[in-house]
């Protein structure tokens, strides 16, 4: 388990971490999620010892490692841009930590081959990083980090430099790998989808502070504030309230809309809006709308719903929410 207490770090006038405290349970896969400049990478690098803290303490596995250099923290670190040792073969890259530890040659060879098989790079032993694709390089970097049997695995935007398809594949692969290896993992990302898909716990950071910590479902359903709600999943602003686009229903008939809205209650009421654009995104349909108040928002419908309404730009519809998702109305968020 990892525990960070009162971590503070400034760069000149910029406050990167403003008194952050966070406990990460052993064996979990936790995502540090936030926009750029939120301090998530600084927090990860502080856990690794690559960045010193102005104040605060870091503990790994019950030991206080605050003053201990990264070499002795028992960590594995994966960088966004792979940090592959370019002059070494894949085998030598993965073996690096073991070579430094002067393990017997036979043991190193066996372990490296095992790891390369796990990450799907068997047969690539003698290639150089320049001969690998981005995804392969990152898997090599993961194998290299895992080779030293780290107590915690720290991933800094590991899929940030990859294209969308490879990224999605690697995400699922990482999740499966974690289920097999069970090493305590911390993943830094600015991609909410990635956090929701991979992590079993998410800490949302903003401006150097933690906004909320919890499992993906409770964060999505019961965000502690507007920031968490708008950062985790998409939102629309309807009559001054933040709502999920898929929680907006559209009707041709005003009375029907009012009846249904009264049944839910607590929403911003029924808004008259005109359709500006209908975008078909595969199974989903996004409808861009403009309320008679001038407010613009988007509703997300299923294809069947959209087909039933047969919307065209210029049509007038009546919108209301089907679930009160504004944090103010929601149950209290999970305590930090």
């Amino acid at each position: 388990m990892i525990s960070v207490t009162g971590a503070r770090k400034t760069y000149g006038d910029f406050v990167a971490l403003d008194g952050v405290s966070l406990d990460i349970p052993a064996g979990s896969l936790t995502a540090l999620l936030g926009p750029s400049g939120s301090g998530k990478s600084t927090l990860l690098r502080a856990i690794a010892g690559l960045e010193g803290l102005d104040h605060g303490r870091v503990g790994i596995g019950g030991t206080d490692v605050t003053g201990i250099p990264p070499q002795k923290r028992g960590i594995g670190f994966v960088f966004q841009h792979y940090a592959a040792f370019k002059h070494m073969t894949v085998r030598d890259n993965v073996a690096f930590g073991l070579t430094i530890r002067k393990r017997p040659k036979a043991e190193i060879a066996r372990k490296v081959d095992d790891l390369l098989e796990i990450v799907g790079l068997d047969g690539f032993q003698h290639r150089y990083p320049a001969q690998l694709s981005g995804g392969q390089r990152q898997r090599m970097a993961l194998a290299r980090a895992l080779a030293v049997d780290p107590e915690v695995l720290l991933l800094d935007e590991p899929f940030g430099a990859l294209d969308a398809k490879v990224r999605a594949d690697l995400r699922q692969w990482l999740r499966r790998l974690h289920d097999e290896v069970h090493v305590t993992t911390v993943l830094v990302t600015h991609d909410q989808e990635e956090a929701l898909e991979v992590a079993d716990r998410i800490a949302v950071l903003n401006k150097g502070a933690i906004e909320q910590v919890g499992d993906p479902v409770s964060l999505y359903d019961r965000p502690a504030n507007d920031f968490v709600m708008s950062f985790l999943g998409s939102v629309a602003r309807l009559g001054g309230q933040l709502v999920r686009p898929h929680d907006i229903a559209l009707h041709r008939d005003r009375e029907r809309a009012q009846q249904l809205d009264a049944r839910v209650g607590g929403g911003p009421g029924v808004l008259e809006a005109s359709v500006e654009r209908v975008v078909r995104l595969g199974f989903e349909v996004r409808v861009d709308l403009r309320a008679d108040t001038g407010e613009r928002f988007a509703a997300q419908l299923t294809r069947a719903e959209a087909d039933a309404l047969s919307l065209e730009p210029g049509d007038t519809v009546f919108a209301h929410t089907v679930a009160p998702t504004n944090p103010a109305e929601a149950e209290p968020a999970l305590a930090i």
């Binding site: 940090a83 040792f85 970097a141």
Partner: peptide, 21 residues
């Protein structure tokens, strides 16, 4: 400095990092 940082997280001392990386 990323390669050097990677080496340090893998346990290499500054001297080892200089010679090997």
């Amino acid at each position: 400095t990323e390669q050097e940082q990677a080496a340090s997280t893998l346990g290499a001392s500054s001297w080892q990092t200089f010679w090997r990386i």
